[in-house]
């Protein structure tokens, strides 16, 4: 790189007054004697000043129609973006996750007819197994979740009403009254969020049926109308985290994104499991989640010491 190239790289920052004091002096000295670079600066100035003037007026009626929409948003029941930390008992956590999957899949019309039922289930299975890593625990969990979904799905197509809001039985749940109550509350909350059509993030404590005996599985669930963009935003966050390569979640996320992009993944539901090696990275992830999804309201999150893995489930509506 010759001297001019170095200066040219800083030309924009110079014009924007974003260079440190010592560099300013240096670049100005150069500009004084280099015709080529000062001509570049002059072109840059012209373009930027034209860009400065691109701002256009608001269209007629903008404020009136905005007002109407704000009023509508205000009158819809309560908070549009729903969030809940859902505490579940160990044995039924698996059932809970499955019910959610089914609930959304059915509502999305994926399982409308018996004949087609197998397809989304197979997709889920393949996605779940795709998430597996070399770690045994991880693999086992992926397989388990895939198997559970398949089981649940066939049950749904045989028995329950396939239309929206179908009743789905918990085949894995211990049906004590208390637990049922918790689940139905959670379902109602999720239903409300779904009805409002807004994004939702749910953090929930879940069961130790997963990866490590003492570990906790945490579910982060995002309902979005564009799973791809949500995935991309999460990858963006992950890229900025200080995790070593061995524990990085990026490869898995990219795999998933690739599957979504190339449509090898046919369902409308994605589930990824993310691993954070320490409190610091988990907290950083959480902070960035709140930055990257500013429109999502996050009330609380599990404490770092309570989790080892987090599962993110993205449902495309």
């Amino acid at each position: 790189m010759n001297r001019c190239d170095e200066y040219l790289e800083n030309l924009s920052a110079y014009l924007d007054s974003e260079l440190p004091e010592n560099s300013i002096k240096d670049i100005e000295e150069h500009l004084n004697k280099c015709e080529k670079c000062s001509e570049e600066l002059s072109i840059l100035k012209t373009i930027v000043s034209a860009l400065n003037e691109l701002e256009e007026e608001l269209p007629d009626g903008f404020e009136t129609s905005l007002h109407k929409r704000l009023e509508e948003a205000g009158t819809k029941s309560g908070v549009k973006i729903r969030f809940g930390k859902v505490r579940l008992f160990a044995q039924i956590a698996a059932g809970f996750v499955i019910v959610l999957c089914l609930g959304f899949a059915i509502r999305a019309g994926l399982m409308r007819t018996g004949g087609k039922t197998a397809a989304p289930a197979a997709d889920m299975a393949s996605v779940s197994s795709m998430q597996s890593t070399a770690e045994d625990g991880f693999e086992a969990a992926g397989a388990m979740s895939a198997r559970s979904v398949v089981t649940g799905t066939s049950r749904s197509s045989n028995g329950a009403d396939d239309d929206t809001g179908a009743e789905v039985e918990f085949y894995a749940a211990d049906k004590s009254a208390k637990k049922e109550e918790i689940i139905s509350e959670s379902m109602a909350e999720i239903q409300k969020a779904e009805d409002s059509g807004e994004m939702m993030i749910t953090f929930s404590d879940a069961a130790p049926y997963t990866f490590k005996k003492d570990g906790q599985d945490t579910l982060v669930k995002i309902t979005a109308d564009d799973a791809q963009s949500v995935l991309e935003r999460i990858i963006e966050i992950e890229t900025g985290l200080n995790q070593d390569e061995q524990h990085s979640n990026i490869a898995g996320l990219n795999k998933m994104l690739n599957a979504v992009n190339t449509e090898t993944y046919g369902g409308n539901q994605i589930e990824v499991k993310l691993l954070y090696v320490n409190d610091e990275t988990w907290n950083e992830f959480l902070t960035k989640m709140q930055v990257v999804f500013p429109e999502v309201y996050i009330e609380s999150a599990p404490k770092a010491e309570d989790i080892e893995y987090i599962r993110i489930e993205i449902i495309e509506e």
Binding site: L66, P294, V296
Partner: peptide
């Protein structure tokens, strides 16, 4: 965007 901001402003 403005409606979303209105709904999410508590955050």
């Amino acid at each position: 965007a403005l409606v979303r901001a209105f709904v999410a402003i508590k955050k």
